[in-house]
């Protein structure tokens, strides 16, 4: 089994850990809602409605399906990295 060098810390700081996990879950929900919106929402479900709007030579729905959603995915991951690094620090859980 793995080593639990942080086990006694868990005992001492249970409240802090609970808060850490709750905040993490909140970030996940927010980011995954955006993930769903740009791909399944804008790219698939509402694609026809959005296609009536133009973005240069693109119909907007088509652009989300073949370009925009991918850009947003990249931004989502880097946002998560930034949020979690900050959370690790404020919760005193960051690695050395």
């Amino acid at each position: 089994m793995m080593e639990f060098e942080n086990l006694d810390m868990i005992m001492k700081d249970n409240e802090g850990h609970k808060r850490y996990w709750k905040t993490n879950l909140r970030y996940l929900v927010i980011l995954l809602v955006i993930w769903f919106l740009v791909s399944f929402g804008f790219g698939i479900i509402w694609v026809d409605e959005l296609n009536t709007i133009r973005l240069g030579g693109f119909k907007l729905g088509f652009w989300f399906a073949q370009q925009g959603s991918i850009y947003v995915f990249v931004v989502l991951i880097f946002t998560y990295v930034w949020l979690m690094n900050r959370l690790d620090k404020t919760s005193n859980l960051d690695e050395n």
Binding site: E5, N6, I10, H17, Y20, W21, N24, D94, E95
Partner: peptide, 10 residues
């Protein structure tokens, strides 16, 4: 529980 917190991965 322990995999949910980053410290101690090393």
């Amino acid at each position: 529980e322990s995999i949910r917190y980053p410290r101690g991965a090393g």
